[in-house]
Write a protein that binds this DNA or RNA. Structure first.
Lengths: 201, 201
DNA sequence: CTGAAAGTATACCGATCGGTATACGATGAA
DNA sequence: TTCATCGTATACCGATCGGTATACTTTCAG
Protein backbone atom coordinates (compact mmCIF):
# COMPACT_ATOMS: atom_id res chain seq x y z
CA UNK A 1 0.00 0.00 0.00
CA UNK A 2 1.73 3.15 -1.14
CA UNK A 3 0.95 5.86 1.38
CA UNK A 4 3.52 7.91 -0.43
CA UNK A 5 1.92 8.11 -3.85
CA UNK A 6 -1.48 8.47 -2.20
CA UNK A 7 -0.38 11.66 -0.51
CA UNK A 8 1.14 12.84 -3.77
CA UNK A 9 -2.10 12.30 -5.62
CA UNK A 10 -3.91 14.10 -2.87
CA UNK A 11 -1.64 17.12 -3.18
CA UNK A 12 -2.17 17.12 -6.92
CA UNK A 13 -5.91 16.97 -6.41
CA UNK A 14 -5.81 19.80 -3.91
CA UNK A 15 -4.04 21.94 -6.46
CA UNK A 16 -6.60 21.08 -9.12
CA UNK A 17 -9.47 21.78 -6.75
CA UNK A 18 -8.19 25.21 -5.78
CA UNK A 19 -7.47 26.02 -9.39
CA UNK A 20 -11.01 25.01 -10.33
CA UNK A 21 -12.48 27.25 -7.67
CA UNK A 22 -10.37 30.25 -8.59
CA UNK A 23 -10.41 29.87 -12.37
CA UNK A 24 -14.19 29.50 -12.36
CA UNK A 25 -14.57 32.65 -10.28
CA UNK A 26 -11.93 35.11 -11.41
CA UNK A 27 -11.03 33.53 -14.72
CA UNK A 28 -7.83 31.98 -15.93
CA UNK A 29 -5.70 34.99 -16.71
CA UNK A 30 -6.89 36.98 -13.72
CA UNK A 31 -5.96 34.19 -11.31
CA UNK A 32 -2.39 34.28 -10.07
CA UNK A 33 -0.36 31.21 -9.31
CA UNK A 34 0.22 32.59 -5.82
CA UNK A 35 -3.51 32.53 -5.13
CA UNK A 36 -3.68 28.87 -6.08
CA UNK A 37 -0.70 28.09 -3.86
CA UNK A 38 -2.22 29.86 -0.90
CA UNK A 39 -5.62 28.23 -1.33
CA UNK A 40 -4.18 24.74 -1.65
CA UNK A 41 -1.50 25.25 1.02
CA UNK A 42 1.30 24.14 -1.24
CA UNK A 43 4.58 25.78 -2.17
CA UNK A 44 5.58 26.90 -5.61
CA UNK A 45 8.21 24.25 -6.36
CA UNK A 46 5.64 21.60 -5.51
CA UNK A 47 3.19 23.00 -8.02
CA UNK A 48 5.83 22.89 -10.70
CA UNK A 49 6.66 19.38 -9.66
CA UNK A 50 3.13 18.28 -10.57
CA UNK A 51 2.42 20.59 -13.50
CA UNK A 52 4.65 22.02 -16.18
CA UNK A 53 3.09 25.47 -16.04
CA UNK A 54 -0.09 27.39 -15.33
CA UNK A 55 -1.70 26.39 -18.61
CA UNK A 56 -1.23 22.70 -17.82
CA UNK A 57 -3.40 23.16 -14.76
CA UNK A 58 -6.24 24.50 -16.85
CA UNK A 59 -5.77 21.83 -19.48
CA UNK A 60 -5.83 19.06 -16.89
CA UNK A 61 -9.03 20.47 -15.40
CA UNK A 62 -10.80 20.74 -18.74
CA UNK A 63 -9.87 17.30 -19.96
CA UNK A 64 -10.72 15.61 -16.68
CA UNK A 65 -14.15 17.13 -16.17
CA UNK A 66 -15.16 17.25 -19.81
CA UNK A 67 -14.30 13.61 -20.13
CA UNK A 68 -16.33 12.55 -17.10
CA UNK A 69 -19.30 14.70 -18.06
CA UNK A 70 -19.41 13.52 -21.64
CA UNK A 71 -19.05 9.88 -20.69
CA UNK A 72 -22.02 10.14 -18.37
CA UNK A 73 -24.02 12.03 -20.96
CA UNK A 74 -23.53 9.36 -23.61
CA UNK A 75 -24.48 6.74 -21.04
CA UNK A 76 -27.83 8.17 -20.03
CA UNK A 77 -28.79 9.17 -23.56
CA UNK A 78 -28.09 5.66 -24.86
CA UNK A 79 -30.25 4.18 -22.14
CA UNK A 80 -33.33 5.99 -23.42
CA UNK A 81 -35.10 4.46 -26.44
CA UNK A 82 -37.21 7.40 -27.64
CA UNK A 83 -36.07 10.71 -29.04
CA UNK A 84 -38.05 12.57 -26.40
CA UNK A 85 -36.53 10.44 -23.67
CA UNK A 86 -33.02 11.07 -24.97
CA UNK A 87 -33.55 14.82 -25.08
CA UNK A 88 -34.98 14.86 -21.58
CA UNK A 89 -32.14 12.73 -20.24
CA UNK A 90 -29.66 15.10 -21.87
CA UNK A 91 -31.13 18.13 -20.15
CA UNK A 92 -31.66 16.49 -16.78
CA UNK A 93 -28.14 15.09 -16.65
CA UNK A 94 -26.64 18.42 -17.68
CA UNK A 95 -28.63 20.12 -14.94
CA UNK A 96 -27.62 17.54 -12.36
CA UNK A 97 -23.95 17.96 -13.16
CA UNK A 98 -24.27 21.67 -12.66
CA UNK A 99 -26.03 21.24 -9.32
CA UNK A 100 -23.41 18.76 -8.12
CA UNK A 101 -20.52 21.12 -8.82
CA UNK A 102 -21.38 24.44 -10.47
CA UNK A 103 -17.70 25.28 -10.72
CA UNK A 104 -17.29 22.84 -13.60
CA UNK A 105 -19.80 24.30 -16.07
CA UNK A 106 -18.82 27.73 -14.83
CA UNK A 107 -15.22 27.10 -15.85
CA UNK A 108 -16.28 25.61 -19.16
CA UNK A 109 -18.55 28.47 -20.15
CA UNK A 110 -16.11 31.00 -18.84
CA UNK A 111 -13.24 29.57 -20.83
CA UNK A 112 -15.34 29.07 -23.92
CA UNK A 113 -17.16 32.38 -24.01
CA UNK A 114 -14.65 34.48 -22.15
CA UNK A 115 -11.39 35.93 -23.37
CA UNK A 116 -9.32 33.71 -25.61
CA UNK A 117 -6.70 31.70 -23.75
CA UNK A 118 -4.14 30.97 -26.46
CA UNK A 119 -2.67 28.01 -24.60
CA UNK A 120 -6.00 26.18 -24.71
CA UNK A 121 -7.39 27.37 -28.01
CA UNK A 122 -8.75 24.51 -30.08
CA UNK A 123 -9.01 21.98 -27.29
CA UNK A 124 -12.24 23.44 -25.99
CA UNK A 125 -13.69 23.75 -29.47
CA UNK A 126 -13.22 20.06 -30.08
CA UNK A 127 -14.84 19.06 -26.80
CA UNK A 128 -17.78 21.39 -27.33
CA UNK A 129 -18.24 20.11 -30.85
CA UNK A 130 -18.35 16.56 -29.53
CA UNK A 131 -21.21 17.43 -27.20
CA UNK A 132 -23.04 19.25 -29.98
CA UNK A 133 -22.70 16.24 -32.29
CA UNK A 134 -24.38 14.10 -29.66
CA UNK A 135 -27.48 16.28 -29.88
CA UNK A 136 -27.33 16.41 -33.67
CA UNK A 137 -27.38 12.63 -33.77
CA UNK A 138 -30.43 12.45 -31.51
CA UNK A 139 -32.29 14.99 -33.58
CA UNK A 140 -31.35 13.31 -36.88
CA UNK A 141 -32.99 10.10 -35.73
CA UNK A 142 -36.12 12.04 -34.89
CA UNK A 143 -36.22 13.79 -38.24
CA UNK A 144 -35.69 10.56 -40.18
CA UNK A 145 -38.33 8.68 -38.22
CA UNK A 146 -40.80 11.47 -38.92
CA UNK A 147 -41.13 12.20 -35.22
CA UNK A 148 -39.66 15.66 -35.71
CA UNK A 149 -40.42 18.14 -38.47
CA UNK A 150 -38.13 17.88 -41.50
CA UNK A 151 -35.95 20.84 -40.54
CA UNK A 152 -32.18 21.07 -40.70
CA UNK A 153 -30.92 18.86 -37.85
CA UNK A 154 -28.04 21.23 -37.20
CA UNK A 155 -30.45 24.10 -36.69
CA UNK A 156 -32.68 22.08 -34.40
CA UNK A 157 -29.71 20.92 -32.37
CA UNK A 158 -28.35 24.46 -32.13
CA UNK A 159 -31.65 25.77 -30.85
CA UNK A 160 -32.08 22.93 -28.40
CA UNK A 161 -28.57 23.34 -27.04
CA UNK A 162 -29.21 27.06 -26.74
CA UNK A 163 -32.33 26.46 -24.67
CA UNK A 164 -30.32 24.17 -22.38
CA UNK A 165 -26.95 25.86 -22.21
CA UNK A 166 -27.99 29.44 -21.73
CA UNK A 167 -29.88 28.66 -18.49
CA UNK A 168 -26.98 26.42 -17.44
CA UNK A 169 -24.58 29.28 -18.03
CA UNK A 170 -26.76 31.84 -16.29
CA UNK A 171 -27.71 29.78 -13.25
CA UNK A 172 -24.30 28.20 -12.67
CA UNK A 173 -23.29 31.70 -11.57
CA UNK A 174 -25.95 31.86 -8.88
CA UNK A 175 -25.23 30.82 -5.34
CA UNK A 176 -27.71 27.96 -5.45
CA UNK A 177 -28.18 26.66 -8.98
CA UNK A 178 -30.40 23.90 -7.64
CA UNK A 179 -33.16 26.43 -7.09
CA UNK A 180 -33.38 27.12 -10.78
CA UNK A 181 -32.13 24.03 -12.61
CA UNK A 182 -35.00 21.82 -11.52
CA UNK A 183 -36.38 18.70 -13.22
CA UNK A 184 -39.50 20.80 -13.87
CA UNK A 185 -37.47 23.31 -15.87
CA UNK A 186 -35.89 20.43 -17.78
CA UNK A 187 -39.33 19.12 -18.68
CA UNK A 188 -40.57 22.56 -19.65
CA UNK A 189 -37.63 23.12 -21.99
CA UNK A 190 -38.08 19.82 -23.80
CA UNK A 191 -41.81 20.45 -24.00
CA UNK A 192 -41.36 23.92 -25.44
CA UNK A 193 -38.79 22.64 -27.92
CA UNK A 194 -41.18 19.98 -29.13
CA UNK A 195 -44.51 21.78 -29.09
CA UNK A 196 -43.70 25.48 -29.33
CA UNK A 197 -45.24 28.42 -27.53
CA UNK A 198 -48.32 28.87 -29.67
CA UNK A 199 -51.58 28.22 -27.84
CA UNK A 200 -53.33 24.97 -28.75
CA UNK A 201 -56.98 25.23 -29.68
CA UNK B 1 -16.16 75.93 -35.53
CA UNK B 2 -14.02 74.42 -32.84
CA UNK B 3 -11.34 72.44 -34.58
CA UNK B 4 -9.77 72.06 -31.17
CA UNK B 5 -12.52 70.15 -29.40
CA UNK B 6 -13.23 68.23 -32.57
CA UNK B 7 -9.73 66.83 -32.54
CA UNK B 8 -10.07 66.11 -28.84
CA UNK B 9 -13.27 64.16 -29.39
CA UNK B 10 -11.60 62.28 -32.20
CA UNK B 11 -8.73 61.27 -29.95
CA UNK B 12 -11.19 60.12 -27.32
CA UNK B 13 -13.06 58.12 -29.91
CA UNK B 14 -9.85 56.55 -31.18
CA UNK B 15 -9.09 55.39 -27.66
CA UNK B 16 -12.57 53.92 -27.25
CA UNK B 17 -12.36 52.19 -30.61
CA UNK B 18 -9.04 50.55 -29.87
CA UNK B 19 -10.24 49.56 -26.42
CA UNK B 20 -13.37 48.00 -27.94
CA UNK B 21 -11.29 45.98 -30.37
CA UNK B 22 -8.85 44.75 -27.76
CA UNK B 23 -11.30 44.18 -24.91
CA UNK B 24 -13.59 42.18 -27.18
CA UNK B 25 -10.71 40.00 -28.31
CA UNK B 26 -8.43 39.46 -25.35
CA UNK B 27 -10.81 40.48 -22.60
CA UNK B 28 -10.66 43.34 -20.14
CA UNK B 29 -8.13 42.14 -17.61
CA UNK B 30 -5.87 40.54 -20.19
CA UNK B 31 -5.62 43.76 -22.18
CA UNK B 32 -2.87 46.10 -21.09
CA UNK B 33 -3.13 49.86 -21.20
CA UNK B 34 0.01 49.93 -23.31
CA UNK B 35 -1.69 47.86 -26.01
CA UNK B 36 -4.52 50.36 -26.20
CA UNK B 37 -2.06 53.24 -26.38
CA UNK B 38 -0.12 51.63 -29.19
CA UNK B 39 -3.24 50.73 -31.17
CA UNK B 40 -4.72 54.21 -30.89
CA UNK B 41 -1.39 56.00 -31.34
CA UNK B 42 -1.79 58.04 -28.20
CA UNK B 43 0.46 58.55 -25.20
CA UNK B 44 -0.29 57.54 -21.67
CA UNK B 45 -0.88 61.00 -20.17
CA UNK B 46 -3.40 61.68 -22.92
CA UNK B 47 -5.37 58.59 -22.04
CA UNK B 48 -5.53 59.67 -18.44
CA UNK B 49 -6.58 63.09 -19.57
CA UNK B 50 -9.72 61.62 -21.14
CA UNK B 51 -10.42 58.78 -18.73
CA UNK B 52 -9.88 58.42 -15.01
CA UNK B 53 -8.61 54.87 -15.22
CA UNK B 54 -8.79 51.63 -17.18
CA UNK B 55 -12.19 50.72 -15.77
CA UNK B 56 -13.69 54.00 -16.97
CA UNK B 57 -12.82 53.01 -20.50
CA UNK B 58 -14.81 49.81 -20.19
CA UNK B 59 -17.68 51.58 -18.47
CA UNK B 60 -17.87 54.23 -21.18
CA UNK B 61 -17.92 51.54 -23.86
CA UNK B 62 -20.66 49.54 -22.22
CA UNK B 63 -22.94 52.46 -21.50
CA UNK B 64 -22.52 53.96 -24.94
CA UNK B 65 -23.19 50.83 -26.97
CA UNK B 66 -25.79 49.32 -24.68
CA UNK B 67 -27.70 52.57 -24.76
CA UNK B 68 -27.69 52.80 -28.54
CA UNK B 69 -28.59 49.16 -29.01
CA UNK B 70 -31.45 49.19 -26.54
CA UNK B 71 -32.89 52.40 -27.91
CA UNK B 72 -33.00 50.91 -31.40
CA UNK B 73 -34.47 47.68 -30.07
CA UNK B 74 -37.36 49.42 -28.32
CA UNK B 75 -37.95 51.43 -31.48
CA UNK B 76 -38.35 48.53 -33.89
CA UNK B 77 -40.33 46.41 -31.44
CA UNK B 78 -42.82 49.21 -30.81
CA UNK B 79 -43.32 49.65 -34.54
CA UNK B 80 -44.66 46.12 -34.89
CA UNK B 81 -48.30 45.56 -33.90
CA UNK B 82 -48.39 41.76 -33.52
CA UNK B 83 -46.56 39.60 -31.01
CA UNK B 84 -45.00 37.57 -33.80
CA UNK B 85 -43.88 40.74 -35.53
CA UNK B 86 -42.32 42.08 -32.35
CA UNK B 87 -40.42 38.88 -31.72
CA UNK B 88 -39.15 38.76 -35.28
CA UNK B 89 -38.11 42.40 -35.16
CA UNK B 90 -36.26 41.72 -31.92
CA UNK B 91 -34.24 38.89 -33.44
CA UNK B 92 -33.56 40.59 -36.75
CA UNK B 93 -32.40 43.81 -35.14
CA UNK B 94 -30.17 41.94 -32.71
CA UNK B 95 -28.64 40.05 -35.62
CA UNK B 96 -28.15 43.21 -37.65
CA UNK B 97 -26.36 44.94 -34.81
CA UNK B 98 -24.00 42.01 -34.54
CA UNK B 99 -23.30 42.03 -38.27
CA UNK B 100 -22.67 45.77 -38.26
CA UNK B 101 -20.06 45.56 -35.52
CA UNK B 102 -19.49 42.14 -33.95
CA UNK B 103 -17.11 43.68 -31.43
CA UNK B 104 -20.02 45.14 -29.51
CA UNK B 105 -21.96 41.95 -28.69
CA UNK B 106 -18.62 40.21 -28.32
CA UNK B 107 -17.63 42.62 -25.57
CA UNK B 108 -21.02 42.39 -23.93
CA UNK B 109 -21.12 38.60 -23.82
CA UNK B 110 -17.49 38.44 -22.86
CA UNK B 111 -17.94 40.81 -19.97
CA UNK B 112 -21.18 39.24 -18.88
CA UNK B 113 -20.23 35.58 -19.13
CA UNK B 114 -16.51 35.90 -18.65
CA UNK B 115 -14.55 36.47 -15.48
CA UNK B 116 -16.03 38.92 -13.03
CA UNK B 117 -14.75 42.46 -13.43
CA UNK B 118 -15.34 43.97 -9.98
CA UNK B 119 -15.23 47.54 -11.27
CA UNK B 120 -18.24 46.92 -13.51
CA UNK B 121 -20.20 44.44 -11.46
CA UNK B 122 -23.85 45.33 -11.28
CA UNK B 123 -23.90 47.72 -14.21
CA UNK B 124 -24.06 44.95 -16.75
CA UNK B 125 -26.69 43.07 -14.78
CA UNK B 126 -29.02 46.04 -14.86
CA UNK B 127 -28.59 46.56 -18.59
CA UNK B 128 -29.10 42.88 -19.35
CA UNK B 129 -32.18 42.78 -17.14
CA UNK B 130 -33.62 45.72 -19.05
CA UNK B 131 -33.30 43.85 -22.34
CA UNK B 132 -34.82 40.73 -20.80
CA UNK B 133 -37.78 42.72 -19.47
CA UNK B 134 -38.47 43.94 -23.00
CA UNK B 135 -38.97 40.33 -24.11
CA UNK B 136 -41.02 39.48 -21.04
CA UNK B 137 -43.40 42.31 -21.85
CA UNK B 138 -43.86 41.12 -25.42
CA UNK B 139 -44.55 37.58 -24.28
CA UNK B 140 -46.95 38.70 -21.55
CA UNK B 141 -49.11 40.43 -24.11
CA UNK B 142 -49.18 37.23 -26.16
CA UNK B 143 -50.12 35.09 -23.18
CA UNK B 144 -52.90 37.44 -22.10
CA UNK B 145 -54.35 37.72 -25.58
CA UNK B 146 -54.42 33.95 -25.83
CA UNK B 147 -52.04 34.02 -28.75
CA UNK B 148 -49.42 32.14 -26.74
CA UNK B 149 -49.93 29.16 -24.45
CA UNK B 150 -50.60 30.06 -20.79
CA UNK B 151 -47.05 29.33 -19.62
CA UNK B 152 -44.94 31.40 -17.28
CA UNK B 153 -43.94 34.50 -19.27
CA UNK B 154 -40.54 34.55 -17.59
CA UNK B 155 -39.85 31.02 -18.72
CA UNK B 156 -40.97 31.73 -22.27
CA UNK B 157 -38.86 34.88 -22.40
CA UNK B 158 -35.84 33.04 -21.01
CA UNK B 159 -36.12 30.33 -23.62
CA UNK B 160 -36.67 32.80 -26.41
CA UNK B 161 -33.69 34.90 -25.35
CA UNK B 162 -31.62 31.74 -25.13
CA UNK B 163 -32.49 30.80 -28.71
CA UNK B 164 -31.46 34.26 -29.84
CA UNK B 165 -28.49 35.05 -27.65
CA UNK B 166 -26.62 31.78 -27.82
CA UNK B 167 -26.26 31.98 -31.62
CA UNK B 168 -25.41 35.66 -31.27
CA UNK B 169 -22.72 34.81 -28.78
CA UNK B 170 -21.36 31.93 -30.82
CA UNK B 171 -21.35 33.60 -34.21
CA UNK B 172 -20.11 37.00 -33.07
CA UNK B 173 -16.80 35.19 -32.54
CA UNK B 174 -16.61 34.06 -36.16
CA UNK B 175 -14.79 36.08 -38.76
CA UNK B 176 -17.92 36.77 -40.76
CA UNK B 177 -21.02 36.67 -38.53
CA UNK B 178 -23.12 37.74 -41.51
CA UNK B 179 -22.78 34.27 -42.97
CA UNK B 180 -24.63 32.77 -40.04
CA UNK B 181 -26.86 35.47 -38.58
CA UNK B 182 -29.14 35.68 -41.61
CA UNK B 183 -32.76 36.84 -41.77
CA UNK B 184 -33.59 33.22 -42.61
CA UNK B 185 -32.13 32.07 -39.29
CA UNK B 186 -34.09 34.80 -37.52
CA UNK B 187 -37.29 33.52 -39.10
CA UNK B 188 -36.48 29.92 -38.30
CA UNK B 189 -35.87 30.74 -34.63
CA UNK B 190 -39.15 32.59 -34.20
CA UNK B 191 -40.93 29.82 -36.07
CA UNK B 192 -39.43 27.10 -33.90
CA UNK B 193 -40.23 29.05 -30.76
CA UNK B 194 -43.85 29.39 -31.79
CA UNK B 195 -44.55 26.01 -33.36
CA UNK B 196 -42.04 23.60 -31.85
CA UNK B 197 -40.06 20.83 -33.48
CA UNK B 198 -42.72 18.13 -33.51
CA UNK B 199 -43.84 17.08 -36.96
CA UNK B 200 -47.29 18.31 -37.98
CA UNK B 201 -49.68 15.73 -39.32
C1' DC C 1 20.74 0.73 3.67
C1' DT C 2 20.37 3.74 0.15
C1' DG C 3 18.61 6.89 -3.01
C1' DA C 4 14.96 8.82 -5.66
C1' DA C 5 10.59 11.07 -4.99
C1' DA C 6 7.76 14.52 -2.65
C1' DG C 7 7.84 18.04 0.02
C1' DT C 8 9.16 22.88 2.55
C1' DA C 9 11.34 27.38 2.84
C1' DT C 10 13.23 31.26 0.76
C1' DA C 11 15.04 34.00 -2.40
C1' DC C 12 15.46 35.53 -6.86
C1' DC C 13 14.75 36.52 -12.13
C1' DG C 14 13.06 39.59 -16.02
C1' DA C 15 8.88 41.35 -17.54
C1' DT C 16 4.76 43.63 -17.23
C1' DC C 17 1.05 45.66 -14.75
C1' DG C 18 -1.86 50.22 -13.72
C1' DG C 19 -0.82 54.66 -12.74
C1' DT C 20 1.96 59.09 -11.87
C1' DA C 21 5.45 62.95 -12.50
C1' DT C 22 7.79 66.31 -15.09
C1' DA C 23 8.87 69.20 -18.73
C1' DC C 24 7.77 70.97 -22.92
C1' DG C 25 5.31 71.89 -27.71
C1' DA C 26 1.30 73.18 -30.26
C1' DT C 27 -3.12 75.59 -30.84
C1' DG C 28 -7.31 77.95 -30.47
C1' DA C 29 -10.53 80.89 -27.51
C1' DA C 30 -10.66 85.06 -24.55
C1' DT D 1 -1.40 88.51 -26.78
C1' DT D 2 -2.28 85.54 -23.18
C1' DC D 3 -3.39 81.24 -21.18
C1' DA D 4 -5.73 77.06 -20.39
C1' DT D 5 -6.38 72.90 -23.19
C1' DC D 6 -4.65 69.04 -25.65
C1' DG D 7 -0.98 66.84 -26.80
C1' DT D 8 4.02 64.42 -26.91
C1' DA D 9 8.07 62.40 -24.86
C1' DT D 10 10.24 60.09 -21.29
C1' DA D 11 11.07 58.40 -17.16
C1' DC D 12 9.62 56.50 -13.07
C1' DC D 13 6.79 54.20 -9.10
C1' DG D 14 5.49 49.99 -6.30
C1' DA D 15 3.34 45.78 -7.10
C1' DT D 16 2.57 41.63 -9.18
C1' DC D 17 3.18 38.38 -12.83
C1' DG D 18 4.89 33.38 -14.33
C1' DG D 19 8.69 30.80 -13.52
C1' DT D 20 13.43 29.23 -11.65
C1' DA D 21 17.32 28.16 -8.30
C1' DT D 22 19.16 26.46 -4.17
C1' DA D 23 19.40 24.04 -0.09
C1' DC D 24 17.28 21.19 3.19
C1' DT D 25 13.89 17.57 5.22
C1' DT D 26 10.90 13.46 5.17
C1' DT D 27 9.49 9.08 3.55
C1' DC D 28 8.75 5.04 1.08
C1' DA D 29 10.66 1.47 -2.43
C1' DG D 30 14.30 -1.53 -4.26
Amino acid sequence: MSTRSEASAKTRQRLLDSALTLFSQRGYSATGIREILQASEVTQPTLYHHFADKASLLQALIEQHYGETHHRLVEVVSAEPSVTGKLLAFVKTSFEHCCTDPRVPRLMFQTYFGPVVPEIDGVLDKLTERRFRLVVEIVEVGVHSGELSPSDPEFLALSFCSMVDQPLNLFSRKTRPKRYLTPELAHAIVDLFLKGATAKK
